[in-house]
C-alpha cells in the first residue's frame, strides 16, 4: 500500500467517487452516473493539474472531514462550499476555486455546501481506485464502481497511488450563479395532460422536495392533471426527463436514474441547464420555461464554450 493516504474522520452525507460516468449500458439497466455537476467536476481537476475527467470525491450538503498522511499534495474544492484546513493549532479558512497544499497530518474539514447541493474535492494525483466499465463512478444502488460501489465511510483510508510533480498554485475567479428558471423541451407525452395541467407546468412555481437524491428530484406544487392514462408502457429514460405519476407531482430523472420507467413524460430539461438544476436544494423554487430544440442546441453550445473558457483560464 502507498504511504500517502487520507483517513476519513467524518464521512459526510453522501460522499462518493465520481468521474465522467459510463456509457453504453442503459440496455442492461445500468445508468450513466458520473459527477452530477459536470462543470464544477472538470474545473476541480484542472485546478490541481489533472486531466479534466479524473475521478474526484463528490459530496452533498455536509462534506467529509479527512486527515492526510504523506508527502505534500495539492487539493482544490469547487462548488459553493465552506471548508477549513487545520494545521497543528492553526485553522485556515478555505476558498473554493483555489488550490491549497496539505502536509503530513493536516486535516481538511469540508463543513457544508452553502445553498447548493454538490461540491467536488480533487487532489493533485490519483486515488487508488477500481474501474468498472472504464469508470470509477460509484452507483450505490447497484454497488458498481469505486469503493466496492459504496459511499465513503468513517475510519476508511483512501490511498493515493500517484502525486503530481507540479504543485504550483492555481486559481480561478468564478462564482456559481443560481437560477430559478429551468428550460425544458416538451416531452413525448405532453398531450396526456389537461390544458390546465399544461398551463400549470409552464406558469406556476414548484418547490424541490426533500425526497431528492442522485436518482431523482421530486417536486411539489399545484397538481398536474392527466386526462389520458397515468401509466405508459415502460420505456427508456434519460437524465433530465420529467415524469408525472398519478399523484400529479413531477419527478426529474437525475444521473443515477432507473433506466426504464412507466410514467408519462411531460418534458425534458435541456442539457445546458442540467448542472444548475442538480444544485437546487430542497425548498428552492423552480419555474419551467419552454424552449424549442434548435434553441436548446445553441444554448448548450454556449454553455460548453463558457465551460471551456473557464478551464482555459486556469
Amino acid at each position: 500500500m502507498s504511504k500517502n493516504y487520507f483517513e476519513i474522520k467524518r464521512a459526510g452525507i453522501n460522499t462518493t467517487f465520481q468521474d465522467r460516468g459510463r456509457n453504453n449500458l442503459y440496455h442492461i439497466g445500468i445508468p450513466f452516473s458520473g459527477a452530477m455537476d459536470d462543470r464544477n467536476f472538470k474545473i476541480s481537476n484542472k485546478l490541481v493539474g489533472n486531466e479534466i475527467n479524473f475521478p474526484v470525491i463528490e459530496f452533498a450538503y455536509q462534506g467529509p472531514c479527512l486527515k492526510y498522511f504523506g508527502d505534500n499534495i495539492n487539493f482544490a474544492i469547487t462548488g459553493d462550499v465552506k471548508f477549513v484546513i487545520k494545521k497543528n493549532d492553526k485553522i485556515i479558512e478555505g476558498n473554493c476555486y483555489q488550490s491549497f497544499t496539505l502536509q503530513n497530518e493536516d486535516k481538511l474539514d469540508i463543513i457544508s455546501t452553502n445553498k447548493s447541493v454538490y461540491g467536488y474535492l480533487a487532489i493533485s494525483g490519483e486515488f487508488n481506485l477500481e474501474y468498472q466499465w472504464s469508470s470509477c463512478s460509484t452507483n450505490t444502488k447497484a454497488n458498481i464502481g469505486a469503493n466496492k460501489g459504496k459511499k465513503i465511510e468513517v475510519s476508511q483510508k483512501l490511498y493515493i497511488s500517484k502525486i503530481n510533480k507540479d504543485l504550483s498554485d492555481k486559481k480561478l475567479n468564478y462564482i456559481n450563479t443560481r437560477i430559478e428558471n429551468i428550460r425544458v423541451i416538451k416531452g413525448t407525452n405532453f398531450d396526456y395532460f389537461s390544458e390546465e395541467g399544461k398551463n400549470i407546468f409552464f406558469e406556476k412555481e414548484f418547490v424541490v422536495s426533500k425526497l431528492s437524491d442522485r436518482m431523482g428530484m421530486r417536486l411539489e406544487g399545484p397538481k398536474i392533471e392527466n386526462i389520458i392514462d397515468t401509466n405508459i408502457k415502460s420505456e427508456g429514460l434519460i437524465k433530465g426527463v420529467i415524469q408525472v405519476p398519478a399523484d400529479g407531482n413531477p419527478i426529474i430523472m437525475l444521473s443515477d436514474h432507473g433506466t426504464i420507467g412507466g410514467y408519462p413524460k411531460i418534458g425534458v430539461v435541456i442539457s445546458a441547464d442540467y448542472d444548475k438544476l442538480v444544485q437546487m436544494t430542497p425548498g428552492s423554487k423552480i419555474k419551467f420555461k419552454e424552449v424549442e430544440l434548435d434553441s436548446a442546441e445553441t444554448l448548450f453550445k454556449l454553455y460548453e464554450l463558457e465551460t471551456q473558457n473557464l478551464i482555459s483560464q486556469i
Partner: peptide, 22 residues
C-alpha cells in the same frame, strides 16, 4: 451515440450533444 434503450415498443437513442445533434 452514448446509449441505446430498447423497450417493449420503443427505442431511445441518447447521444453526446458535443459531437452530434438530433
Amino acid at each position: 451515440i452514448n446509449n441505446l434503450t430498447p423497450s417493449y415498443n420503443k427505442l431511445i437513442i441518447s447521444f453526446d450533444l458535443r459531437k452530434k445533434n438530433f
